[in-house]
Design a binder for these strands. Sequence first.
DNA 1: TGATACACGCTTTTT
DNA 2: GCGTGTATCA
Length: 831
Amino acid sequence: MPAAPDSEAPAALAVLTPAAFAAARGQAAHALLEGLNAEQRAAVTLPAEHALILAGAGSGKTRVLTTRIAWLLQTGQVSPGGVLAVTFTNKAAREMQARLAAMLPLNARGMWMGTFHGLANRLLRTHWKAAGLPQSFQVLDVQDQLAAIKRLCKQFNVDEERWPARQLQWFINGCKEEGLRPPDVPVKDADSRRKVELYELYEQQCQREGVADFGELMLRSYELLRDHADLRGHYRQRFAHILIDEFQDTNRLQYAWIKMLAGLPQAGAHPGEPSPERTGGTIMAVGDDDQSIYAFRGARVGNMADFVREFGVRHQIKLEQNYRSHGHILHAANLLISHNQRRLGKNLRTALGAGEPVRVLQAPSDFAEAEWVVDEIRHLVREGGLPRQQIAVLYRSNAQSRAIESQLFNAGVPYRVYGGLRFFERAEIKHALAWLRLLLNPADDTSFLRVVNFPPRGIGARTLEQLQDAARAAHAPLHQAVPALTGRARANLAAFTGLIATLRQQAQGQTLDQVVELVVEGSGLADHYRAEKDGQERLENLQELASAAQAFAQQEGFGRDAVALPPAAPQMDAGMEAGLPAEMDAQAAPASEPAAGEPPLAAFLTHAALEAGDNQAQAGQDAVQLMTVHASKGLEFEAVFITGLEEGIFPHDNAQASPDGLEEERRLMYVAITRARQRLYLSHAQVRMLHGQTRYNVRSRFLDEMPDEALKWLTPKNPGRSLAEDETFGSAGRRFGLNAGPNAGLNAGLGERAWRPMPDAARAAALPSATANTREGAPIRAGMQVFHNKFGEGAVLEIQGTADDAKARIEFKRHGVKLLALAVAQLTPLP
DNA sequence: TGATACACGCTTTTT
DNA sequence: GCGTGTATCA
């Protein structure tokens, strides 16, 4: 179907009138527009000029993006090779690819579609020489990077107290995200000078070892284009259309990278830069400033405004028609986000009708909150007929999942927790990958140190220190320094390096999954885990790694019998010193296709670093989904619970210091709300166990920033409103009470929870209705006997303060004297 | 050299 | 409350 050559079609089409345009394009192209609304259609069919699409939550953003690409191809405005489509996550990239494939019978291989880092990697693999990297450079993930920094710090006797490795890592990544090399970093004091020094040393170490961290992929590929006019010219000409997803999440470097590719050099950033060469492609940036929730890791919403200004963007389209949520939910979201000052401005609308009101619960404790959530979930599944996987429980921080998990577990409701250890991050997998990396590159000292004594082979810290000293003295990688040692240390190390050499030999001519199995067995990893009593799962994961390798080889089209390793001895130590620009210029401008010709093993290792994989805990089962609000972005569910809506938790304490922080928290809440299709439940608890301490929290301000008419409080919002009045869903309150009995029995039966359900008396006292009475009706006075749902029975010694600030000093029978705020503490007077 | 004990700290997270 | 990482001991 496609594809006139890049050059000819666009100009011709751009000047046609809409009518002529419509007549000219094929029927197939026309069909692409079916079912799109006016805004979406306008975005898809924009002329070839820079554009910003403000795509609200649930407004069909991905659809617009993919249809736009299909449209460009179908109308012959661009060939697949002329498209560059960038996303943040592999998942988003895969989704885009799949949807496009469904739309067009097209081999998307020629298209550059992927994550920022994936595409940066592709550039660097293709032009490794020009970029000054060894051909088979390895990618360091976060863990590897931290290990590398720790090693560096040890070597240079850095005071771990003053400069914690984590902090250095954060500093280095921050610099790279800003596009700053060590000489560019402003130095304020001795402390920052030292940090910059270490940054520089770290870079040298990476260069020596032939590895690149995530930030390096971006920065190095940016510099590659900046410093090589021929390459820059080539790619600018090639990529006629650049499409960027989640533009509000781009950091400074990513935007600069886009500018470099699109032909708008960063003005003034580099004096040597010739005047702007505006020969690049057209950018379509898609994003939503209201969903910018990654400022903490460098995302810069300001890039949206900068883009409009710097590129003179004339086309801005807002997608405000929401296809996901019912009216009350959307109304709540709209009003909440309107409390933010700094927005581009957007108001979502839906055609789905008002739907159910948003239900809000005040629970006496986190435990009760969880209990209520589980009750509602069972109700939704049983009576509402909802599949469990269409129900999500969201929370601000991971620590909050525990309470919900326990309750779901006790109730026997299947659930899946997102986040946590991903497949390629597991220790046993990292070990196996380190062995594999050493086959390819024995100079990879990070990998060397990871497995030199794992499984244990009698090489201790002492020996390694000697080895590192020797290597340093010789300016050589660790494996080359082995002969410098003596005695048993040397023998043990030689056995290790010998084993690697042997494995490399045996791996010759084998396929990727065979090599993986060979290494898992030959390294002793398998035996080690077989001997361990809890090693079964790890063994299975290693088995899984071989399967993953096989799947990968197939997916990448390496053919069934493709040999994993290059036949010749791998190139390594040579050519790792800084790359030589002169040499690169000699290299011909890139051929059209960038298939870097990486051997399967190298490609697989890159894949493992660039894509951490899922944590497939209970995948596949019909399970309730538990995740942080951050993790929920981009997803949707029929029913959503947002828990822990308390000041200090959501919005989080650490974010309240600055207005910006608070606005980001509010956007986070906005994201959470807009995940829900039909039903939304919000809850907060008066007492919560957090980090082993009891906290009394005031309800989140966000609850007061949503419209009353869209909310339905299941417990009284203001003291005095009674639960029983609630007809439709008041049963929630009652059910909540009634279920206490059977549930308590169930819990008791399953035993050994540290935080068993409250005794019935306490439970009754903790029920919302009882609460209301307490707070409104029966004032607490000195001398009274009271019941507290955590501390039990106690005597009120005195009352301090008045009104909302009133506190009671209470002597509890088992917990001593406590000072509790009457406004929050659940106190029931006892006769 | 390996195993166990005790601080420590702790928002969010993709690549 | 729990996992991680270092310190110390056998």
